[in-house]
Amino acid sequence: MTALLTPALTGQIINLLAAVLLLLSFAMLAQRRILSLIDLFAAQGFVLALSTGFVAYATGQSHLYWSAGITLGLKVVLLPLILHRLIRRLDVKWDVETLINIPTTMLVGIVLVILAFNLAQPVSELAGTVTRGTLGIALASVLLAFLMMITRSKAVPQVIGFLAMENGLFFAATAATYGMPMVVELGIALDVLIGVIILGVFFFQIRERFDSLDIHHLEKLKEE
């Protein structure tokens, strides 16, 4: 195992996984179907866990194995399960409606990626970590998830965008400083889980009130 995985190769694998992460962010941005969106989110979580595992291997930081394990359990198994259940209960398998058409969204996405890469370059030049090159990608996936939240009009894709943003932040933390302290990481994991559960309750409330999950109805919420 040690003979196979030289440090150079591990670095390349981390870079490859980072690139796949960016690709998955774009795929989520372009995805029309809500069920595929959840699958893509699970795939992104898996890639994230894998890359965290490789960073842990490359740096010998054992607590990163724990975060990889938590990521795997939470973002690949638990959250997609909850989201699938939610969708079945809400019966919202319809195609995702986007506010801007998808090619335009993707062009905006490319501009965001260029911005993120430019922003991250001076920072990563200062850093001495193995993963310094991937900071730009982490920032890009945060921005892309943000863009996804902005361009979707329905509640469920927005929540998936929020979760994808958390994925990007997690990746940024791994890339910049080899992960956050364990306490913080556990706290965030719990936050995300609770957040999804609360938002799940919100979905039902929104639908009960407006017969739809379109967020724009919330803008008209006024006392009469």
Partner: peptide
């Protein structure tokens, strides 16, 4: 849309090359 995706992938390839 299909070809836009292809273009986007190709631009991403350029960017990823520049970054990584």
């Amino acid at each position: 849309e299909f070809l836009g995706t292809a273009f986007m992938l190709a631009v991403l390839a350029l960017l990823v090359h520049a970054l990584l």
